[in-house]
């Protein structure tokens, strides 16, 4: 589960600029989740194309297993929405219809989020935030947070195993203590690790008034331009559709 939040620098295939990823994410939020321009058919097909993009990006990041699972799941739900929903009635309609309604719109963004978190290193993220002139008050907590996620998850897994051994689990003898006996140890050890981490971070110059440097090279390359062009096409379709040039 820790691999969900951290990037494997050695083996991650094609590297995109963090800002490109952010732009793809915002586009997905506008078109796939927000349903903007869904009355224009060109935009509707474009949205489907852009919705598949995160799966392809996961492929380029060599995360084939994740890409396959998400890709099949999305294809199933999308085809259910197109072929199944118009042909059913009654109770099935409300359940299947609601699932389709929610997941068809949420999934592209969620897949993109999974790709974003698992393919961006903390340094790259901070460098990109710095270039976008986000204040230090936001970037420092966020960098600490991304650094801390794997640690919290690791501790949580260990605590979870220990509590399962004591039969404090769903369906176990002491199920009532389920939450308390997991969260309290997690917080006590997190606070302790956290104070060590903050000492380490201070030695690396976080929180000082001087401008920090970053050895991480970020910038737009050919793959970024390809992705951005694809996304821009969708926006152009939308604008043309609004003026009535396209339907």
């Amino acid at each position: 589960m820790a691999a969900l939040f951290t990037a494997d620098i050695e083996n991650r295939g094609l590297v995109l600029d963090p800002r490109t990823k952010l732009f793809v994410m915002i586009t997905l939020v506008i078109f796939a989740l927000g349903g903007t321009g869904s009355d224009i058919s060109a935009v509707r097909y474009g949205t489907i194309a852009v919705s598949i993009l995160p799966v392809l990006l996961l492929m380029t990041a060599r995360q084939y297993k994740k890409a396959t699972v998400f890709g099949i799941l999305y294809a199933l739900i999308k085809s259910a929405e197109i072929f199944l929903v118009p042909n059913i009635t009654g109770a099935e309609l409300s359940i299947i219809g609601l699932c389709c309604l929610i997941f068809v719109r949420l999934m592209p963004g969620l897949i993109m989020g999974a790709y974003m978190l698992s393919s961006t290193t903390v340094s790259e993220f901070i460098a990109a935030m710095h270039r976008m002139h986000i204040p230090q008050q936001i970037t420092i907590p966020m960098s600490v947070m991304f650094r801390f996620f794997p640690t919290v998850l690791e501790e949580f897994t260990a605590i979870n195993t220990a509590m399962k051994m004591r039969d404090i689990r769903i369906g176990g003898k002491n199920a009532g203590k389920l939450v308390e006996y997991r969260l309290v140890p997690l917080m006590v050890c997190s606070v302790n690790i956290g104070s060590e981490l903050s000492a380490a971070a201070l030695t690396r110059g976080l929180g000082t008034k001087v401008r920090r440097t970053n050895i991480c090279k970020i910038g737009f390359h050919i793959q970024d331009i390809a992705v951005l062009l694809l996304i821009l096409t969708l926006y152009i379709f939308w604008i043309l559709g609004m003026f009535g040039v396209m339907k």
Partner: peptide, 20 residues
């Protein structure tokens, strides 16, 4: 706000978000 406060925010945001 000093560096230590900002780091504290990061640590607790991480715990909170893992629960979320």
């Amino acid at each position: 706000m000093k560096g230590k406060d900002l780091i504290n925010i990061g640590i607790f945001s991480a715990i909170y978000f893992v629960i979320v």
